Computed example of a mutant assay.
Amino acid sequence: MTQPLILVVEDDPDLRELMTVSLANSGYRTVEAADGDSALERFHAHAPHLVLLDIALGPHSIDGLEVCRRIRRHSDVPVAFLTTHADPVDQIVGFSSGADDYVTKPVNHRLLLARIAAILRRVNGSGRTSDPTELTAEGIELDLVARTVRVKGTPVDLTRIQFDLLVPLVEEPRRVVTREQLVERVWGQWYGTDHHLDVHLSRLRQRIVEAGGPRVAHAVRGVGYRLTS
Rank of each mutant, 00 (worst) to 15 (best):
A118R: 03
N124H: 15
H200G: 00
W190S: 14
P173I: 15
L142V: 09
N124C: 12
R205M: 10
L82A: 09
K105T: 03
R121V: 14
G127P: 08
L158I: 10
R110G: 14
H196M: 10
T84E: 05
T104M: 03
R115M: 11
D157W: 10
A118L: 09
I208Y: 10
V107L: 02
F163T: 07
V107P: 00
L165G: 06
L197I: 14
R121Y: 08
L111I: 12
V176E: 09
H195W: 03
Q162F: 07
A219D: 08
R205N: 02
L120V: 05
I116E: 02
D157R: 13
V220Q: 07
T154P: 00
G212F: 09
T129H: 08
R203P: 00
Q162V: 05
Q181K: 12
P173C: 12
P173N: 06
G139D: 02
R221I: 04
P155K: 00
T193N: 06
R185L: 08
Q206P: 01
G127W: 05
D131M: 11
K152M: 11
T136A: 15
V167H: 01
V170C: 10
T159Y: 06
E134A: 15
T104Y: 01
H196A: 11
T83R: 01
L166Y: 10
I140S: 07
F81V: 07
L135E: 03
P173S: 08
L113K: 04
V167Y: 05
S202E: 12
V220N: 05
H85I: 07
G125W: 03
E171Q: 14
V170Y: 03
I92C: 03
L169A: 11
R221Y: 04
H109K: 05
Y191E: 04
E172N: 13
R205D: 08
Q91V: 15
R185E: 15
R185H: 14
I116H: 01
E180Y: 04
Q181Y: 01
V89S: 09
S97Y: 00
V183L: 04
L166Q: 03
P173L: 14
V177N: 07
S96V: 02
H218G: 13
A117N: 04
G125N: 02
A99H: 00
R150Y: 02
Q189R: 06
L204T: 07
R150Q: 15
P173E: 05
K152F: 13
A80L: 04
A86D: 13
D157N: 10
P106W: 02
I140W: 08
G188D: 12
R203F: 09
E171K: 12
G153S: 13
I208T: 11
G127F: 08
R121I: 09
Q91C: 11
V107Y: 00
G125I: 04
L112R: 01
R174M: 12
V103A: 09
V167A: 07
T84L: 14
S97A: 11
Q181V: 07
V199M: 15
L113Y: 04
I119K: 01
N108A: 12
V93Y: 00
T104P: 00
V176C: 15
V123C: 06
K105M: 03
P132T: 02
E138A: 15
V170H: 06
R115F: 07
E134S: 14
E172K: 13
T193V: 11
R110N: 05
D90T: 00
R147F: 05
V220S: 13
V156S: 08
Q189F: 11
T154D: 00
L82R: 01
P88R: 04
H200D: 07
K105P: 01
G192L: 06
D101H: 08
L165S: 10
